[in-house]
Write a protein that binds this DNA or RNA. Structure first.
Lengths: 121, 121
DNA sequence: TTCTGATATGATGACTTTATAAAGTCACTA
DNA sequence: TAGTGACTTTATAAAGTCATCATATCAGAA
């Protein structure tokens, strides 16, 4: 009753998907891409304010997890969401968050949904 | 055009939500809880095969991020999802994953959705 | 070919998360 | 009140993630 061998790796894969989403800049990038058909890296640099190499690393994480795809046309690289469902996921997360936040206000335990009071900058 | 001060912390909060989901055991726990109204820790220990203290740490992460709530009745502690939307999120993730996996099979780039080939145990 | 702009990759230090073991708390019973 | 079962917290080493800087690649201009 404890292990279903077939199921176990799936938890890992699922957790990895969320790992891909577990950084503010990556969320930012995905939300930018959710609103357009595609975007060149240069646009994302100016939209996020990130240094090119830093952004590039996050983009490579997103590529590795299969959340975005890129295409080079001339010297410009364009990115877009690999699947429209990625946008769905962000939207469901948004809905959940607004619940979470409302709830935390109601209960004035305003630290909810934050990583632990001490680690919020 | 680069920063919207009001929006920025939201990316952080959203990323934190995904961080809470970014571990196989926590996904496992949430899926267990998604299927019942509540579950005692002892059930989750046997369902996951985890050592009590290890499970407890993951439960505390989930509590900290506001994804689950616990209640002690006599000497048993019961957990349940803090919001039904948590189950929605998992379900959307599942749908996205099945797309991702199908797609990666079609393109025989079977490493998709995995953390980077080298870090898969 | 060499230069340049646009990205990507690699290396490194700072920091955070995870897994394991040991100690602690809480509620109940003998 | 001592003991026990059910958890939780603390401590710590190992592994992983992030930000920064230097270097590399790629495509078009000179």
């Amino acid at each position: 009753m404890a292990f279903e061998n077939d199921e176990r790796p799936l938890y890992e894969i699922k957790a990895n998907l969320f790992k891909g989403l577990a950084h503010p800049y990556r969320i930012r990038v995905l939300e930018i891409l959710a609103g357009v058909s595609e975007a060149p890296v240069s646009d994302m640099i100016s939209a996020t304010g990130l240094e090119a190499s830093h952004l590039s690393q996050h983009l490579s994480v997103l590529r590795r997890y299969g959340l975005v795809v890129s295409e080079r046309r001339a010297s410009v690289v364009y990115y877009r969401l690999a699947f429209p469902q990625v946008a769905d996921l962000l939207q469901v997360a948004r809905a959940l968050l607004s619940e979470l936040l409302q709830d935390s206000q109601r209960h004035q335990s305003s630290a909810l949904a934050l990583p632990a009071i001490s680690s919020v900058r």
